[in-house]
């Protein structure tokens, strides 16, 4: 695995890390910023992750659904269909 792919894999794990553990909100937001910079996340979805950065118990995906923010790219990235 190349270094870039390894980093990307680590960030993907961070992006989807368990909701709740201490500083997990920061991990998700930091990873979201990476995927935004790669063009794989919308600015609106990145903002959802920023809002959840300091609230480890808030699920950004839930918040996005609640607020009607939907990003087809993230669904593809996460391997899910919404």
């Amino acid at each position: 695995m190349t270094e870039h792919r390894a980093d990307r894999a680590r960030l993907a794990v961070d992006f989807e890390c368990q909701i709740g553990p201490e500083r997990s909100g920061e991990r998700r937001y930091a990873a979201a910023m990476y995927f935004y910079s790669c063009g794989e996340l919308s600015a609106e979805m990145l903002e959802i992750y920023r809002r959840c950065c300091n609230d480890d118990s808030e699920d950004p995906q839930d918040l996005a659904r609640f607020e009607g923010v939907f990003d087809i790219r993230i669904s593809r990235f996460l391997g899910r269909s919404e």
Binding site: R10, E26, R27, A30, Y34, N54
Partner: peptide, 11 residues
């Protein structure tokens, strides 16, 4: 730090 440094002011 969680794979990055995040500014606590604006992010």
């Amino acid at each position: 730090c969680p794979n990055a440094l995040i500014c606590p002011f604006h992010g």
